[in-house]
């Protein structure tokens, strides 16, 4: 039995028919071709598949597609909507050398965004805590933590300027 669900992904509305057992990860990657969302384990342990659902960071590999009905989903593809000007988090990942193989990157960036939305000035420990569900085998996390803390700073500076 297929279910027809509507969801909003990166600002665009989609209607898809899904199996009850199908995950959000499968819908994003296979149906919507949003392959920036990765699949590293399928069991909720690595964080490579992290997306924001109504602003909350979730493992798309553990989230059933039917749970996304009516929800707002943000994937890495939606981080820089214009496609040209990158999100501060992306810029800092690039500049600080926080990317090696890049397979964890999208998930890391989404977890970072979730953190900075909740806590605009996190301490190093808070950043590390927020990343504890995102595994990386290449970087040892050092430059990722550095990138997020400098993104936080830049985002705060920018919002101060705007006030």
């Amino acid at each position: 039995m297929k279910h027809v669900i509507t969801l909003n992904v990166n600002g665009d509305p989609y209607t898809v028919s899904v199996d009850p057992s199908q995950t959000l990860n499968e819908v994003l990657r296979e149906e919507l071709n949003l392959t920036g969302v990765k699949l590293g384990c399928g069991s909720g342990d690595c964080g490579a598949c992290t997306v924001l659902m109504d602003g909350r960071a979730v493992s798309s590999c553990l989230t059933l597609a039917v749970e996304a009905e009516g929800k707002d989903i943000l994937t890495v593809e939606g981080l820089a909507p214009s496609g040209e000007k990158l999100h501060v988090i992306q810029e800092e990942f690039i500049d600080k050398g926080a990317i090696q193989c890049g397979f964890c990157t999208a998930g890391m960036e989404m977890s970072a965004l979730h953190l900075l939305n909740k806590n605009p000035s996190p301490t190093e420990t808070e950043i590390r805590e927020a990343l504890s569900g995102n595994l990386c085998r290449c970087t040892g996390y050092a430059k990722i933590v550095e990138a997020i803390s400098s993104a936080a700073q830049r985002m705060n500076d920018a919002s101060e300027r705007n006030q």
Binding site: L79, A80, Q90, F93, I94, G102, E109
Partner: peptide, 8 residues
């Protein structure tokens, strides 16, 4: 390749 990886 950093930009390509950062943007998915």
């Amino acid at each position: 390749d950093a930009r390509a990886k950062a943007t998915g």
